[in-house]
């Protein structure tokens, strides 16, 4: 699933990532813009997704990701790996990873790298869930 979290409507990047993942043979659910953490988690549950990709360009990535991960834990689906892209400063990465985000992609990341990450993350998640 590719989600736009928070209050900004610029989704070119999210759509490009969604498109590339589709072209790599994946089924991609796109949520559209301005989603709340609760919506993202509920959608992930209903669609039973393998990986969640989040795009944030508003600058509120730390507080939003905190809420998102809290919500995932509340609903018992914290095993779904999350990757984050957008305008994320390099210096914020350690803190974001501490919150529980699996991977952060900075501007300029090659699309191949993202595809490879999602593929591996999905496989890993599918191996894990046997519950």
């Amino acid at each position: 699933m590719v989600a736009k979290l928070g209050l900004n409507g610029h989704d070119r990047g999210a759509k490009i990532v969604a498109r590339v993942l589709k072209d790599a043979g994946m089924e991609v659910i796109y949520t559209g813009v301005r989603q709340t953490p609760e919506q993202v988690v509920e959608t992930a549950i209903q669609e039973d997704v393998d990986v969640i990709g989040v795009s944030i360009l508003s600058g509120a990535h730390i507080s939003l990701m905190k809420k998102l991960i809290e919500n995932l834990k509340d609903k018992g689906v914290e095993h779904i790996p999350i990757f984050l892209g957008g305008t994320i400063p390099l210096l914020d990465i350690p803190e974001i990873e501490k919150i529980g985000v699996d991977k952060v992609f900075l501007p300029g990341t090659s699309l191949n790298e993202i595809v490879k990450y999602v593929y591996d993350a999905a496989l890993k998640k599918r191996m894990k869930i046997r519950d």
């Binding site: 589709k22 072209d23 790599a24 089924e27 949520t31 559209g32 989603q35 959608t43």
Partner: peptide, 22 residues
């Protein structure tokens, strides 16, 4: 639809329905 080339898919119908997601 599934892409006949990559067998991937872009599923975007629910964008219009997200107001009901909760």
């Amino acid at each position: 639809p599934t892409s006949p080339l990559s067998r991937g898919a872009f599923l975007g119908d629910r964008i219009r329905m997200q107001e009901h997601s909760l």
